[in-house]
Write a protein that binds this DNA or RNA. Structure first.
Length: 257
DNA sequence: AGCCGGGCATAACTAATCTA
DNA sequence: TAGATTAGTTATGCCCGGCT
């Protein structure tokens, strides 16, 4: 989808992107290869060509951060397919909801492998940085409001400034409202029994049991819970991406008439 | 050159949620 | 529960391109 995206260009918004699609310009390459663009002066067209050639180079060489500020947050999902397999699914646990709460567990899922970093054991700025290295796109659920700000507070300058597909907003756009657990059920993603009843609130309680009483079972359960949250982001992201994509492609076809 | 209009950027505001 | 962010409005001003 990203190579069909023209809203990264200066002074190109949703409307102009649609009219480009309507005119049969549906890919960066088609724009560049066209001798002229309807409603665009030649000098402007040439400037746009330069932008798109640069974007293409950035994309081909894996510099996803180029797009972080070029794409508004609600459109960063368009990068998803191109960024695989360097997509990192991220979910944290904390001891509360305050913006300065302690991060207790960080789950990181990438290319089929899941890592769980635990405060006081192996969660530090450098272990986190190492685990996130090479990330080209972040996927979270409500991470723009929660996970990333808290990680920034606890571990400054550790989370890479790459594009971020926040599933909370992506799901809402395709009619899936509610928290992660509810959305998972709506989409048909299941959870193992032992972890099915655990909520975020209980995750904070489980941490207290481990920290204050040294309850190993509590920590194990917390890890399992976090792992489940983190891994389930992947099928949910695939599902959400496909639906957002066909929605946009539908609009593209509608444009034709 | 000068005018007009479409569309973009920006700001300000609201409503609607999520997160442990 | 508190706090935060986003998406979606609306209004305003500006830029650009087309027209004469």
């Amino acid at each position: 989808m990203i190579r069909r995206t023209f809203v990264i260009l200066p002074s190109i918004g949703n409307g102009t992107e649609r009219s480009l699609w309507r005119d049969g310009i549906r890919h960066w390459d088609e724009f560049i290869d066209s001798p002229s663009i309807n409603g665009m002066s030649q000098s402007r067209k040439e400037k746009m060509d330069e932008h798109l050639i640069e974007a293409r180079e950035m994309l081909n060489s894996g510099h996803s951060h180029y797009f972080t500020n070029l794409l508004v947050p609600c459109e960063q999902w368009r990068l998803f397919q191109e960024m695989e397999p360097s997509v990192t699914y991220l979910d944290i646990e904390t001891d509360g909801l305050r913006h300065d709460s302690k991060v207790t567990v960080v789950g990181i899922h990438r290319d089929g492998e899941t890592r769980t970093l635990v405060r006081g054991i192996d969660l530090h700025s450098d272990s986190l940085a190492r685990a996130l290295r090479g990330t080209k796109l972040l996927v979270t659920f409500n991470g723009r409001s929660f996970d990333v700000p808290l990680l920034d507070f606890n571990f400054p300058f550790t989370v890479p400034r790459v594009p971020h597909f926040d599933l909370r907003h992506g799901c809402a756009r395709i009619g899936l409202r509610g928290g992660l657990k509810k959305v998972e059920r709506d989409v048909g993603i299941g959870r193992p029994k032992e972890v099915d009843y655990v909520t975020g609130e209980e995750a904070a309680y489980l941490w207290k049991l481990w920290e204050r009483k040294g309850n190993q079972n509590a920590l194990n359960l917390l890890r399992r819970y976090n792992e489940e949250d983190t891994r389930n982001l992947e099928p949910l992201a695939r599902h959400t991406y496909e639906r957002l994509k066909s929605r946009l492609e539908g609009e593209m076809i509608e444009c034709q008439r």
